[in-house]
């Protein structure tokens, strides 16, 4: 199959086929227009990217840096403040044989691209690694523990910045929507979307998702074609997760109905404002233990920390 320019296509979606150069251009335009249309970085002075050393956050880091550089010279791009700073925030959960490899890659990538990097670990923040927590806390799934602690740290350190971009791609978003529907967690749905959060509050970091409209395969293809050399890794806990089942289900549907993921995400976004209006906008409480935002008197991260201490 050929691109309209006559070169061999490396990408096909519905009736469209693109060669390497045109795919790269298409992908970058898609991400940049998402940033611009949703005013992610308008007037921002400090921008963080939640990075793991995986393909999504590596692509995001590269493109946010490129966007910032181009926005200073191109009128058509929305402008962050002049000299806006970019930094990468990484979390070391403490997963043996997995995280070190990706963090080593991330350190080298940030050094090469002159991006400052801050790494925060579960061990130093909470006193235990994810591996230790999983071994002792049978009542919590690995992804529940990891998600709660990661969100807490990203929020805590991301709050110091004007905005934090995360590498959630289209597949991640569809999985989040479907999982919450299947589990009847409809109360969580308003928290999803291209710009997270139902209420604005000084305790919440502002989080945005520039890869929201990019399928996982497109992100990988971009990373591959750009030669980033992101190492192959797969979280050892991912195989047992509910998300893994949701991924298989959505991919199965999507292979029969191309464009299904885009439809799920765009329709979700279209009714998200109504969904958010329909929920009671409660201002967050502060966790009685750590002072972080919390739905109850104790935040999930502290609840898990206390359960870990009690399990000794």
């Amino acid at each position: 199959m050929k691109c309209s320019c006559g070169k061999k296509a490396v990408f096909q979606h519905k009736d469209s086929a693109l060669c390497k150069e045109h795919f790269i251009d298409y992908f970058e335009r898609k991400v940049f227009s998402t940033i611009k249309e949703h005013a992610f970085f308008d007037d921002a002075e400090s921008i963080g990217v939640a990075a793991s050393g995986g393909k999504d956050s590596t692509v995001l880091l590269y493109l946010v840096k490129k966007y910032l550089e181009q926005s200073q010279s191109q009128e058509k791009l929305a402008k962050p403040k002049k000299h806006a700073t970019l930094c990468a925030l990484a979390i070391d959960e403490g997963i043996e044989g997995y995280r070190k490899k990706t963090l080593d890659f991330l350190k080298a990538f940030c050094e090469q691209n002159e991006i400052s990097l801050s790494i925060y670990s579960f061990k130093s923040a909470f006193g235990f690694s994810l591996d230790e927590a999983v071994a002792r806390l049978q009542d919590y799934g690995p992804c529940t523990i990891c998600g709660a602690l990661r969100r807490s740290l990203i929020n805590r350190f991301g709050r110091k910045l004007d905005v934090v971009a995360t590498g959630h791609n289209l597949d991640d978003e569809c999985q989040g929507i479907i999982m919450n529907l299947f589990k009847s967690n409809t109360g969580f749905l308003p928290r999803l979307g291209i710009r997270t959060g139902v209420v604005s509050h000084a305790l919440f970091s502002k989080r945005v998702k520039p890869l929201f409209f990019c399928p996982e395969k497109e992100v990988f293809l971009y990373s591959f074609l750009k030669g980033f050399g992101v190492p192959f890794t797969e979280c050892p806990y991912a195989v047992s997760s509910y998300r893994d089942n949701a991924r298989r289900f959505i991919n199965s549907v999507s292979s029969q109905f191309p464009g299904a993921k885009e439809s799920i995400a765009s329709h979700f976004l279209s009714f998200l404002p109504a969904l958010r209006r329909s929920v009671e906008k409660k201002q967050p409480k502060q966790c009685s233990s750590c002072g972080e935002p919390s739905a109850g008197s104790l935040c999930k991260a502290c609840e898990i920390s206390l359960a870990f201490v009690a399990s000794r």
Partner: peptide, 8 residues
């Protein structure tokens, strides 16, 4: 054949 699913 590369897996496009990675990270976590």
């Amino acid at each position: 054949i590369f897996s496009v699913i990675s990270g976590g």
